[in-house]
Design a protein around this nucleic acid. Structure first.
Lengths: 200, 200
DNA sequence: GAAATTCATTAACATAGGTTAAGATTATTT
DNA sequence: AAATAATCTTAACCTATGTTAATGAATTTC
């Protein structure tokens, strides 16, 4: 489902407000960028992308929850991350490498997003320093986030990772199934339930 | 130990060749960048940075091996990564956040590197598109690498991670202690020894 | 080159987390 | 509201990895 986006749609205002919290974006640049984004909705259970598909787009989440996960050959799901409002979402590695995605990105709730073709996004953002600053900052933030996740997986046991999850995604605990949280922590739902019962 | 670097030192030639494999670097930019790098050597056991220190510099490894590791409150070491020739090295998160490093970066062998103050590096690299392309590509490569490591820690058991380590760091197996490899895999040296014996 | 130190291996036992299965809740459908 | 289905909890047992300790091999020191 596609809807044109204009600079004064509520959704684009939210996008722009977020980007302007990172760097100044002149009005004409804001207008150029608005043209490449479309407003889309994903119903709960729908996919932003599936493994095997070549990603072409990036998204900005207005509301809702997405889950990024891998599926191994045995059929086990591993949740790489959750994405919530005010976050960019993409099968980033695959997009950069121009390869099929290894990730599924699925809506855990009805989700509203702005979506742009990556090529268009790159074209606009290479045209003005403000987007380059924004992209640089977002890449840095991503690296910092990944570094944190990586060190948690390396150093912390499941109970500690669970407590960290509660801090990192406030409110998500009540909204999504334990199965998803467990697969994010790298454990089974049974094990998560045990951990939760010990904490009470 | 500091030594000035010129565009025709062997070390800087190696740096430049690597960067030119990513993007065209005009001669005058190469000369500007040469001025901010100094050639340094770390003896085996010396540190590029210690946890608690504020990182100011980035390095490019000419030869040798560095180990990036965390230390938890119990005194356990966790190896985040190894760095070898033709790689940039820095306490990257801390550098971006302007915070003290949580990482130790230690030479596992006598190591030769080019080192630049991060501020100087940023100043030069913001002055020409070629460096921005290079930085962008290196950030992307870092994200891809981290994504791979993250998914391995989440999805794979220790034996599979060990086999992946052998692929990712060819030759390192014979050069560094099993203790370091084990701490990279998130297991104990005893467990690594068991895994190795089962593979034979 | 002998002694001392460090490192890798192996074994015995402990523990965290996985697996399966049975109830107990909660949510969904009719 | 009853019936069904999905989810969460608990328990019993299993497996991978941790812990400690003993031994052997390799390296360093004197």
């Amino acid at each position: 489902m596609h809807t044109n986006t204009s600079t004064d749609s509520l959704e684009y205002k939210k996008y722009l407000a977020f980007m302007r919290s990172i760097a100044d974006v002149p009005e004409d640049e804001a207008e150029k960028m608005a043209e490449v984004f479309r407003h889309e909705k994903l119903d709960k259970g729908q996919f932003f992308i599936r493994a095997g598909e070549r990603p072409q787009t990036i998204g900005f989440i207005i509301s809702g929850i997405l889950r990024l996960y891998y599926l191994n050959d045995k059929g086990d799901e591993f949740t790489k991350a959750f994405c919530v409002e005010n976050e960019m979402v993409a099968a980033y590695s695959a997009l950069l490498l121009e390869e099929p995605s290894r990730l599924f990105i699925e809506a855990l709730e009805d989700t509203s997003l702005l979506v742009a073709p990556y090529e268009s996004y790159k074209r606009i953002s290479s045209g003005h320093i403000c987007w380059q600053i924004i992209n640089q900052k977002m890449a840095e933030a991503l690296i910092i986030k990944k570094e944190k996740r990586e060190s948690a997986l390396l150093m912390d046991d499941a109970a500690k990772r669970y407590l960290q999850f509660l801090e990192d995604y406030p409110g998500l605990e009540g909204k999504v199934k334990q199965y998803y949280i467990a697969s994010y922590l790298g454990i089974t739902p049974v094990s998560l339930s045990r951990i939760r019962s010990k904490l009470k």
